[in-house]
């Protein structure tokens, strides 16, 4: 069973994990959104003038 009782260190362990997951999540989101956006633009380009 995972031990979620950090005791007196809770104020350090949870922020460490929390900030890490938030930043990684933001990185992933940013990358995926940009990827989808430019993929769609590129595909639109291919339909107009197939290379």
């Amino acid at each position: 069973m995972p031990d979620f009782d950090m005791g007196r260190y809770a104020a350090f362990v949870w922020p460490a994990w929390g900030i890490s997951l938030i930043v990684l999540g933001a990185l992933a989101a940013r990358a995926l959104i940009a990827a989808r956006r430019w993929r769609r633009e590129a595909e639109k380009l291919d339909q107009e003038r197939p290379r």
Partner: peptide, 20 residues
């Protein structure tokens, strides 16, 4: 794995962006 995913996705985005 996360870095590789971010990196390769980033490169693919850059290739698309430059073409557009």
């Amino acid at each position: 794995a996360l870095f590789l995913a971010l990196w390769i996705t980033g490169i693919r985005t850059e290739v698309d962006r430059r073409r557009v």
